[in-house]
Design a protein around this nucleic acid. Sequence first.
DNA 1: GTCGGCGATGGTGGGGCGCTTCACGGCCGT
DNA 2: ACGGCCGTGAAGCGCCCCACCATCGCCGAC
Lengths: 340, 340
Amino acid sequence: MKRPTIADIADRAGVSRSAVSFALNDQPGVSEETRQRVLAVAAELGWRPHSAARALRGGRAGAIGLALQRPARLLGAEPFTMELISGLESELSARSCGLNLQVVEDTEAEIATYRRWWAEHRVDGVIVLNLRDADPRVGVLEDLHLPAVVIGGPAGTGSLPSIWSQDAAGMTDVVEYLAALGHRRLAHVAGDPDMRHIVDRTTALHEVCRLRGLPEPVTVRADYSDEDSAQATRRLLASPDRPTAIIYHTDLTAVTGLEVALEMGLSVPDELSLVAFNDSRLCRLVNPKLTALAHDIPGRGAQAARMLFAAIDGGPGADSQPAEPYRLLPRGSTGKYRTR
Amino acid sequence: MKRPTIADIADRAGVSRSAVSFALNDQPGVSEETRQRVLAVAAELGWRPHSAARALRGGRAGAIGLALQRPARLLGAEPFTMELISGLESELSARSCGLNLQVVEDTEAEIATYRRWWAEHRVDGVIVLNLRDADPRVGVLEDLHLPAVVIGGPAGTGSLPSIWSQDAAGMTDVVEYLAALGHRRLAHVAGDPDMRHIVDRTTALHEVCRLRGLPEPVTVRADYSDEDSAQATRRLLASPDRPTAIIYHTDLTAVTGLEVALEMGLSVPDELSLVAFNDSRLCRLVNPKLTALAHDIPGRGAQAARMLFAAIDGGPGADSQPAEPYRLLPRGSTGKYRTR
DNA sequence: GTCGGCGATGGTGGGGCGCTTCACGGCCGT
DNA sequence: ACGGCCGTGAAGCGCCCCACCATCGCCGAC
């Protein structure tokens, strides 16, 4: 089976290749009658533009890139990524734009991927995840003039448009909620403290605690692995003045934390309250169900895609904007602290 | 910043564009000295081949396609996909080949995507997931001569190479294990009964039960949604002669089932044993941990990628082959049946 | 009333995007 | 003189679009 080209259509329709091109691209220069004839022939032959030829001609690559920076063993556990992708897709498919995925080991590899994508004309723009402090990716993308939308920020994104979750506000909500339940000794299990959103949340946490006159909250670091996040919770709970509420920065670590707490014989929420950032089905699968901060991740993906298109087109609409705020969903894992 | 082209290198190195091309592609026709000079200049300019130009010239698109057929709201919950992708990537990046992702609503849309990818020269081959009975995708891909590797089978893949999990063997292991624990009334919660692997497992289940003299196992259908799989388990457990062991075809439905069972006041595993196909972190997050059939999904992804490359190159190594068999991992959710 | 000029309309030809590759042509050594 | 070895020129992949051209209707000048 041979893919039809514009020349095939031209032959069949009895016109020149230019005329076909004009007709197919809604360009002036052909009569309405010819245009219809050409379109009919094209449909009949099942013609579709050769993406490489289009791209070569100086047009778009017709795809955007998403580099996922995570160790292979953790991919999959986190629902976030797939939800984001599904949101991106909803916009991409409407513009019949492809999505190029690449799993990378670290920031250096991610940057190399951007350079390669740029040099090979593989993508028209990229979505950047997990912004860090002084993130080197920003400068590289600016230098390359590769359109990009950062999910995270708004600080530290340079000239790149970003869509930022309102992390400080989310954290504030949580603390107010926990304080209202009578909690005073708070802790949180944080991932990489370089991450912009972790920084924002941590700052807010300390700030609100100070304002409310609560003791200084405790921070424990943990990567996203099973063992590490379990260990983090275990350390917190083994402490003599253990916290009465723990905030987790991902659903995954929270669920792990819950298991550890139950294992250690603590009653949740009577003796310990748990809250997770990033609601997902995971939070509803465990018992008690986890109180979580939810936000519409597919929606954010779609918004990011729209912004990226705007940035690629160079038109308006590519300004940084906040994402919809977090919604606090109280569930069974939080309650008043009661000694038994 | 302008992307350098072969002409730029030719100018700088003082040779013709052809010579540059030969040098860069390890083609004979240039002296070793010239080759080195050209390579040096290319490296200096940071040259990379323009993927579109290569593809247009009749070469490869330099990417493979993966169409994910699932409703947006379920994407993300299943760890399977991302693990598979990470496995694919490990091979792809070694051959600096891209991965094109597309989320589609149904089989029809998936087929349309294949046709589009083919017509637009976007991918060199595709990975096909979730083979069904009389799957229409197979014929389409054969007609298009689009290289493809099916994950699933081995029956019903036509001329397409496949990599098939040994579902019947896995199911047999489970039943033997449960029978050894004294279980007699078995049930399973199955997804779409069209799916090839579900069919294979179901057939094996009935077969082994027959051989062992166990009563006919009960089948309950459930899609992958929260509510549906919960409802399925609830129905099973409400029955007067309820099963003493339930087998789930995904980790996700199993976890949901466990929650339902505990909610209904059943003790697991004393009154009910649960087994999940597809081990994942989910299975270890719940309490009791779920007995599961594990297999190396990233490994399978890598294997699929290698086979696809073989199919694309038209060389050997593109024959169907079994995946590594399932490993049964007994955990807390299975045990002898004890009435209390 | 006729005719030349002119703009609008509908269509063709061809170049070029960056890369590969085939046909050829100097220039050695034997 | 002839066969390797190096290297060049040019064509062409499919598409887009600029430069052109033919035709025709219109209008004002004669």
